[in-house]
Design a protein around this nucleic acid. Structure first.
Length: 910
DNA sequence: TAAATAGGCTACGTC
DNA sequence: GACGTAGCCTATTTAT
């Protein structure tokens, strides 16, 4: 037997083979034989070996011929169709692979592979060896214990006692009875009619076992169900025999042979060549040469405890108070921190040393009174000298503040560290980080609270179950910290983390806590107005079309426009002709309908997204809207905003702008103060380009679009036509957004050639801009990433290296006129990201000043280049100076930063 | 068979 | 270029 604590994976091979056979499209070897299942199965085995690093591996196969279950119940698995020939021929090949990997194959006549799994599971459990059953078969769930779990390789998901409880609501020892009641179509297990998972769980909850359920059939609700239980008694009992796995299959396991690591490299190479597996061959070679993976094998030692007595709490406090650094996490009742109630706290103070302190739980579970816990732990959380680390600490700060605790000493946030290291990653979730950096799979929250409509709240989950999960959530950041810290240091990102992003967490927490006042009555007024107009338009549209249809359905609209009316489609989407605003605009010249649709859409959008949606998001307690600012989603370094997104409140149209009038100062005697950077991105561009004229123009406060129009067109400043200014403005924006001539032509509605000429003229006049772009492309191509002013990085692949240096005889460098997507992204990221750096600096600086000068003014919103404050009228004057100084003073660029400030009762008038 | 859920897609609001 | 949200539509899962 293996030593206690090792891990063995046992594979139910047929289950896996059938899965991959159906999932992978046809594939043939160089000799023309089908190999899709061989390919899929081999890849799965490799994945297990590479990712899971088991100490041992065993492959169980179903033997040919019938098993004891067929003798018991002749139609067992009767619904199964014959194995297709294209699959049958692949079995010998799979055996060859498994043999070459030197994994023991176990197949016992009369017993199914599942029974072998059951037997191995028992042996492991008896010897304290961890066992993972790799199968899609639900029968295996009856085998779950402390040491045994089911592993779903498709979903990379470990199904254990907790998962079972969340899923079926039963304990492992109830699985057999559960399945006997429910039955299984695929295996032709009869079960009892009218009893599904829901009812089975209820019955077992009430009566405990199948026998007792059957004996108490009289007491079951529902006449028909009662009858079925009585009549189906025998079938249920047979079902039970079919479902129950045999844990005593007569078989000797050669544990020594099962150990992973000894491969027949030569034979593997031969087989891969034979089957035409190129990528697999490489991985096999790496395995055989002992190529270690990036992450350590998971030997996760942890000592997690639940704190449920005052003595234990005191002990914990003593431990924590003596620490320089602790990791903190909270469990709550809601993802919205402003509505969340505390359910528990977790702390980690050394790797694997963590505790969970429950303050709420299901009736009967032992918890400590919140007030007592706060009295003991509050001072630690508020102690600046005890440094706090964690994952997404902004959330915990807001929750704690709701409980009257100001968390201080924030020093490291793993989510932000991960973002700084790789801003392009899709998520920076703790479970992903744990997997990526520690090679450890964490308990998933869905295993605790489930998902979908019967998702539970955290306070409804038994404390014992949460403790493990919660303690881990504090432990993992603590373990990630040194690794992430070192990587940040290596990339020169520590100052950005320590001096900008981490302190910013507190500012964002403050902003979210503050929220913005929304005038619900005003919105209701607008809603009525918009609804009326919307209704009128809908009626006119129906009149023209002749029948009602869903105006919000692009599909139905396309049908009406292009089939019924017979207009010509302008462009296509993936699924049919496009009906977007640009298309409708063009069609408006030919028919009255498109114009009406555009207008109707505008009102529908305003109503659906803002006017009717906003009131629902007003917090009942505060009467304000508290959106969430996300610090780790925008790859450029910008913030993003959600629930609701207050960074896209309309401003361009009159109708839309009215919505801003519903955003008001918090109370009488207060004002909204909006301060925005004027042309910050163009100033950043001027800075990087080092173009003297541009910088000088900004220094003198000239209108930059007029200036560019005058210079590019070679006319005097006062001769610039509005048309020329519009063109120059579009080019300026095009540069920032990395727009192509095609895009510019579209926005301006001019021919592509004219747009291209426009841009060429621009670059001729501002060679510094061109040089900046070429430098950026060169950097991106060379090092695979670009950097902002403060050294923020974004990895970008696919940038081509610009040609010979400037001044070479044949200057055929790729022109910024023809950049591909990665190239445009690279240029845009430097500009947009630098602007993001600057306003983040401004937020920190302004917040500090507000605090230092003891003002009551509250920062409430950030919209990329704008900060909005809620301020007492008497502070406005002082505030205006303060904001201007701090916002302008954040950096010393070649261009000065200019700030415009508006003061009013509502946002529209700012 | 109907209802619930998930995910893709189109469209559109901001900077 | 960077985002988030709404609504429709379809496919898939689940409940009865």
């Amino acid at each position: 037997m293996l030593p206690a604590g090792s891990t063995v994976y046992v594979v139910d091979c047929h289950s896996l083979i059938f899965q991959v056979f159906h999932a992978i499209p046809e594939m043939t070897s160089p000799r023309g034989e089908p190999v899709n299942a061989v390919f899929g199965f081999t890849k799965d085995l490799l994945k297990l070996i590479e990712d899971k690093r088991p100490d041992a591996l065993i492959c169980a196969f179903d033997p040919p011929g019938d098993t004891f279950r067929h003798e018991l119940y002749p139609v067992y698995k009767g619904e199964r169709s014959e194995t297709p020939t294209e699959l049958r021929s692949q079995f010998p090949k799979i055996h060859q692979i498994v043999e070459a990997l030197r994994i023991p194959i176990i197949s016992v006549p009369k017993f199914e592979a599942d029974d072998v799994l059951a037997t191995v599971a028992r042996l492991c459990d008896e010897s304290q060896v961890f066992c993972r059953l790799v199968t899609g078969d639900k029968d295996s769930r009856q085998l779950i214990t402390n040491h045994v779990a089911v592993y779903n390789i498709r979903k990379d998901h470990v199904y254990d006692e907790v998962a079972l409880l969340a899923d079926w609501g039963v304990r492992p020892d109830q699985v057999v009875d559960f399945q006997s009641l429910v039955g299984d179509k695929i295996d032709n297990i009869p079960g009892v009619p009218l009893i599904g998972p829901k009812i089975a769980k209820e019955l077992l909850d009430e009566f405990g076992t199948l026998d007792r359920v059957l004996d108490n059939a009289d007491r079951v609700k529902g006449a028909k169900r009662q009858q079925n239980l009585k009549e189906g008694r025998e079938l249920a009992l047979i079902s039970r025999q079919l479902v129950r796995l045999d844990q005593y299959v007569p078989v000797e396991i050669d544990w020594q042979a099962a150990r992973v690591g000894d491969f027949d490299a030569e034979r593997l190479a031969e087989l891969c060549a034979d089957f035409g597996f190129r990528s697999i061959a490489e991985r096999m070679a790496a395995l055989s040469s002992g190529g270690a993976a990036d992450t350590a094998p998971s030997d996760w030692e942890a000592n997690y405890r639940a704190i449920d007595t005052p003595e234990a709490l005191a002990e914990l406090a003593k431990t924590l108070a003596a620490c320089e650094v602790i990791s903190v996490d909270t469990e709550t009742t809601s993802v919205n921190p402003r509505e969340a109630e505390l359910v528990g706290f977790s702390f980690a103070w050394a790797e694997g040393e963590a505790a969970y302190v429950p303050v709420r739980g299901p009736a009967g579970d032992r918890v400590l009174p919140l007030a007592d816990v706060l009295a003991v732990l509050g001072p630690i959380l508020e102690d600046e000298s005890i440094k706090k680390i964690g994952q997404n600490l902004k959330y915990d700060m807001i929750v704690l503040r709701g409980a009257g605790v100001t968390m201080r000493g924030l020093s490291f946030d793993t989510m932000i560290a991960s973002y700084l290291l790789d801003a392009g990653e899709r998520t920076h979730n703790l479970d992903v980080l744990s997997d990526r950096y520690l090679g450890h799979t964490t308990v998933k929250i869905s295993e605790l609270i489930g998902s979908g409509k019967n998702q539970k709240r955290m306070d409804e989950v038994p404390v014992a179950q949460i403790a493990e999960y919660a303690a881990e959530d504090a432990d993992v950041p603590l373990r990630l910290w040194p690794m992430l810290h070192e990587r940040l240091d290596r990339d020169g990102l520590l100052p950005l983390s320590d001096d900008l992003e981490t302190p910013l967490v507190e500012v964002l927490a403050e902003m979210e806590w503050n929220g913005v006042r929304v005038d619900v009555d005003r919105l209701a007024e607008l809603s009525k107005q918009f609804a009326l107009r919307s209704q009128e338009l809908a009626e006119q549209i129906e009149e023209i079309v002749g029948h009602p249809f869903n105006l919000a359905s692009p599909k139905q609209l396309a049908e009406v426009l292009f089939q019924e009316i017979g207009l010509k489609p302008i462009k296509r989407t993936k699924t049919g002709p496009s009906t977007d605003a640009a298309v409708l605009e063009e069609l408006a010249a030919l028919h009255p309908l498109p114009r009406l649709i555009v207008e109707h859409r505008q009102y529908a959008k305003l109503r659906g997204t803002y006017v009717d949606a906003l009131p629902q998001l007003v917090n009942a307690k505060t009467g304000r809207v508290h959106c969430s600012f996300n610090q780790v989603v925008a790859a450029t370094g910008r913030l993003s905003c959600s629930d609701p997104n207050l960074q896209n409140i309309p401003i361009r149209t009159d109708e839309g702008r009215q919505i801003r009038s519903a955003f008001t100062a918090g109370e009488a005697g207060w004002k909204l103060v909006a301060a925005d950077y004027s042309q910050i991105e163009l100033r950043v561009l001027a800075h990087f380009s080092e173009d003297e004229t541009l910088c000088k123009a900004f220094a003198e406060g000239q209108d930059i679009h007029t200036l560019v129009a005058s210079q590019v067109n070679g006319v005097g400043l006062d001769e610039v036509t509005s048309e020329q200014r519009r063109g120059a403005k579009a080019v300026n924006f095009g540069i920032i957004y990395g727009q192509s001539p095609f895009g510019l032509a579209k926005t301006l509605g001019i021919p592509k050639e004219v747009a291209a000429q426009f841009i060429a003229d621009y670059f001729a006049r501002y060679p510094g801009v061109m040089d900046f772009m070429l430098d950026t492309l060169d950097t991106a191509a060379r090092q695979g990433y670009v950097e902002t002013l403060l050294g923020r990085r974004r990895a970008i692949a696919g940038v081509r290296k610009p040609g010979p240096p400037k001044g070479a005889l044949f200057d055929d460098r790729p022109q910024p006129l023809q950049m591909n997507l990665p190239e445009r992204t690279a240029v845009n990221t430097v500009i947009q990201g630098t602007a993001a750096d600057l306003i983040k600096l401004a937020m920190l600086a302004v917040s500090r000043r507000l605090k230092d000068e003891g003002l009551r003014t509250k920062l409430i919103l950030q919209i990329h280049d704008e900060l909005v404050f809620d301020a007492p009228e008497e502070e406005v004057e002082q505030l205006t100076t303060l904001i201007t100084e701090e916002m302008q003073g954040v950096a010393n660029l070649r261009t000065p930063l200019a700030v415009d400030i508006g003061v009013a009762d509502n946002w529209a008038e700012c």
